[in-house]
């Protein structure tokens, strides 16, 4: 753990990830998968689109910047109660100070229409949730690797 942290620290500042996921099981699995490569506090979770928008706009209870830091990337589920993934995506891309945050669609769907629409709306990736934990770990590693090491993100 120490070595891992040290290595990350020594190269790059680890990226901050915000996950919008209503399903408790999926949330747990995603957190567990990210734990392999990232410190716990680097991944935060909200349970639906409404909470996501409140978080990003720093509306209570998300006004504590230390506890709820601005994310570098967002993992967004499509099927969520209240404000769904697509509505949240549209809102994010409408807000001037939010639209630069890359949004990765992370969903069970592999529907061609969903893929088409979300890319058109400004999402950065479309990932279908993998079938096994092993696969999930591979995907989270790739996400973390790509967005923290391969690409440069806006400030």
């Amino acid at each position: 753990m120490f070595i891992q942290d040290f290595m990350l620290m020594s190269f790059e500042k680890p990226i901050q990830i915000l996950v919008a996921e209503d399903d408790e099981d999926d949330k747990l699995l995603i957190l567990k998968a990210f734990e392999r490569t990232l410190p716990k506090e680097k991944v935060t979770c909200v349970e639906d689109g409404e909470a996501l928008l409140k978080y990003l706009k720093r509306v209570a209870p998300y006004n504590d910047l230390l506890k709820y830091p601005r994310p570098d990337i967002i993992l967004l589920d499509l099927n969520m109660p209240r404000v769904g993934g697509k509505e949240a995506l549209a809102e994010i891309k409408r807000c001037e100070d939010l639209k630069s945050i890359p949004v990765i669609i992370f969903t069970t769907s592999s529907n061609l229409d969903d893929i088409q629409i979300t890319y058109k709306m400004g999402s950065s990736s479309f990932i279908t949730k993998p079938g096994s934990f092993e696969e999930l770990v591979r995907v989270t590693e790739e996400i973390e690797n790509y967005w923290s090491k391969t690409v440069l993100l806006p400030d």
Binding site: L29, T108, K129, G131, F133
Partner: peptide
């Protein structure tokens, strides 16, 4: 079949874990 995949994915994932 689509919705059945959800819980199945979880069963697989948690048994992997």
């Amino acid at each position: 079949s689509h919705d059945l995949q959800e819980p199945l994915r979880k069963i697989t994932s948690f048994s992997d874990l």
